Simulated assay, not measured.
Amino acid sequence: MKDSNHRLSVNSGKRLPLVFLAIAGLASLTNTAQAEEFQFRLHHFLGPDSPAQKVLLEPWAERIREQSNGRIDISIHPGMSLGGAPPSLVNQVESGEVDMVWTLAGYTPGRFPRTEVFELPAVHFRSAYATNRAIFANFDLIEADYKGLKPLLVHVHAGNAIHMAGQDVTEPADLRGLTIRTPSRTGGWLIDAWQAEQAAMPAPRIRDALADGSIDGALIPFEVFSSIGLEGLVGHSVVGADGSRFGTSVFLFLMNQDQFDALPADLQQVIDDNIGLDFVKEMGLAWDDLEVPGRMVQYENLTKLPVDDIYAFEDVSEQVVQRWIREVTSQGIDGRELVDEARRYIARYSRIITTLD
């Protein structure tokens, strides 16, 4: 049997010129190179079926591939599959070990001090859309947090509810002495102010911690309620009747700056065209919508605190805000300006989202 190379060189019994074959081979190699000029690895800590991957990362990577005509290929690696623990993700992208990451700012406490303002209780209200818009509008005030990094999206979820394995919660005193999972250091400060014990852990560990009784509850959004398997483990979920939450978490979609700078100008533009205000709005609305299924799962176990009861929680939350202002002011950061501007813009865009509702 003749091999494939021989078949390629035969055409109606006549041998093709060698120069033709050389040109054809070169064209093939050139086309292959052009198809994947830049291959980037995107690493994150949640599973492959998580909302972060399905709603944010996969569609975005596909848009970049299409708009670059296949010259940029982004492979997504969920669940820390490239190694390390969630707190190492920022270091991985800074060092160039990976090209892109999606992570929580709270997994590297103190690394993004200005950005923390948007996760504070009594600053964030209830809407990912509103706080995303506020972050985008004030990015110049937090830009210093991202030296050496290319921020693709800085966003939040709709906000933390209090999820308790056992007892219901109607006032801060109900939490005294209990152990509550925190998503961030400012969340930990809120738990401290409740006179409860804080337990820091990534979201995927919450289920086992609730099941074995090592924590009594957790601060998390409804968005991940089902994806991390909390059905049947949470007896009470607590929010304000006005939709208010107990702070939120800031997520970071980051690219290694050197990798971005190495791209030709036209491919840099492809990325920049896909990280603007429209993207911010899209992901804000998406994360607000992602709350609905989890809330429905907990419908029979959902406590909505009336306004009078929320005031007691807000008084405690304000202690956390003032602690944060003192902390960052000692670092030479104008914490009061950040809080004032964050609140002003979140209030503005919360009115917009209320109108849309």
Rank of each mutant, 00 (worst) to 15 (best):
F125C: 07
G70M: 15
P59M: 14
G79K: 12
N91L: 08
V90K: 06
W60T: 08
M100Y: 07
S68E: 11
F125A: 08
W102S: 15
F112N: 04
W60K: 11
P121M: 02
R65D: 07
R63D: 15
L104N: 06
Q92G: 05
P109N: 09
M100R: 07
G79L: 02
Y129R: 13
I135C: 00
E58M: 09
S50R: 04
R63I: 15
E97P: 06
R63P: 13
R114C: 03
N138Q: 01
R114I: 02
E62A: 15
I72H: 15
H124N: 02
P59Q: 14
E66D: 15
D49M: 04
P51Q: 01
R133N: 02
S95M: 03
L120F: 05
F136R: 04
K54R: 10
H124A: 00
H77A: 05
N69H: 14
S81I: 06
P51I: 02
V93R: 03
A61F: 08
F45Q: 06
E62N: 14
F136V: 00
R71Y: 12
A137G: 00
G47S: 14
N138P: 01
E58L: 11
S50E: 05
G84C: 07
A61P: 15
W60A: 14
A130T: 00
A52P: 09
A137N: 04
T108Q: 12
G84I: 13
G84L: 09
L82E: 11
L82T: 10
N69I: 14
M80N: 12
G79M: 10
G79F: 07
Y107G: 12
W60I: 02
T108M: 11
Q67H: 10
T103H: 08
I74Q: 10
L120P: 09
Q92A: 08
H44L: 10
Y107N: 15
P59K: 12
L56T: 04
W102N: 12
V101D: 04
R71I: 14
S127Y: 01
L82A: 07
G96S: 09
L120A: 04
V55W: 01
G70A: 15
L57V: 01
S50C: 05
E119N: 03
L104C: 04
L46Y: 01
R133F: 00
